[in-house]
Amino acid sequence: MKKLLNRHETYVFIAVVVFSIIITIINPNFFTLENLFDLLKSYSLMGTFAIGMLFVLISGGIDISFTAIATVAGYTIAVLLLNVGDHLNIYMVFLIAGSIGIALGFLNAVIIHVFRIPSIITTIATLNIFYGLLTVITKGKWLYGFPTWFGDFATTRVFTLYSAHGNPYGLSIITVIWIGLVFISWFLLRFTILGRSLYAMGGNVNSAKRAGFNIFGNTAFVYSYMGLMAGIGSVIQALLVQTVAPNSLVGKEMDVIAAVVLGGASLTGGTGSVIGTILGVTLIAIMGNGLTLMHVPALWYKVVIGLVILISVGVSAYRRKMSAHKRVIIEND
């Protein structure tokens, strides 16, 4: 119990529950399967990005460029879908987008590791490079009109239920993909030496070097993994809106970082968990959704999110201060 109270995740979970109850009291439509399935589907994009970001933050780095990576990957597959779409299938689309993401993420890792440039600087620069070049080459054109099989896949449901009005709803295949990523990531972080060494490296990089961890390997892995998630995210985005626009993702970096931080990851590295990240994304999702359901004008959304972030980081700063205070008390029995 005491252990549970020490965990950041517990507090986020309580916040999620409290908000859910409040929203449900005001508008019972919130706590319906239809709404929940819909929420899960529409926030799977942020969820995917957030998982990639979690890995980077745990290792002690940060990646600002993932939106640009996703844009490049998304645009590439959109062009392919429009030109040779009939020869492609969904696996190939994920494979291509994922590979582009991995390649660009790996490039980030090389610059960060080889030239010792801080990750925030490197990725701000590469964000501008990837995004700038892409927009120049594509002239900012929106792409749409993908093959029907691509649209069909997006609306595939694992099982289908019908609402009182006869509208079909159910668990979307996109949500399933996201849940799959969550499980893989959870397993990686919890049960592999690679995952534990990311925590170790984020906790103390010098000790990690002395203990014989492959620092470049770990760096390359986290940025490539972030890239992979950006690539997969770009396909999810294309599936969700059936349109690819060069400027639809860039600028949303901070929202994702905020969600991961809400979930307990630290920007100094070494802490964070998959479950916390999911809770962080959930909190943001139900607040956005809840405000709509409570008929609060959408304009207030950012105000609420901003306040929640400030309260959350304020509370954890306060708890850190208190535990640091406890630690200075010396032992004299």
Partner: peptide, 26 residues
């Protein structure tokens, strides 16, 4: 001491052996 402050005591003690043995799964 070169420890990892954010990992448990057990992990700090044992993780080196996993790395040395090139094991992948914990």
């Amino acid at each position: 001491l070169s420890l990892f402050p954010n990992l448990t005591v057990a992990e700090n003690i044992a993780i080196g052996q996993y790395v040395a043995n090139h094991q992948k799964i914990i």
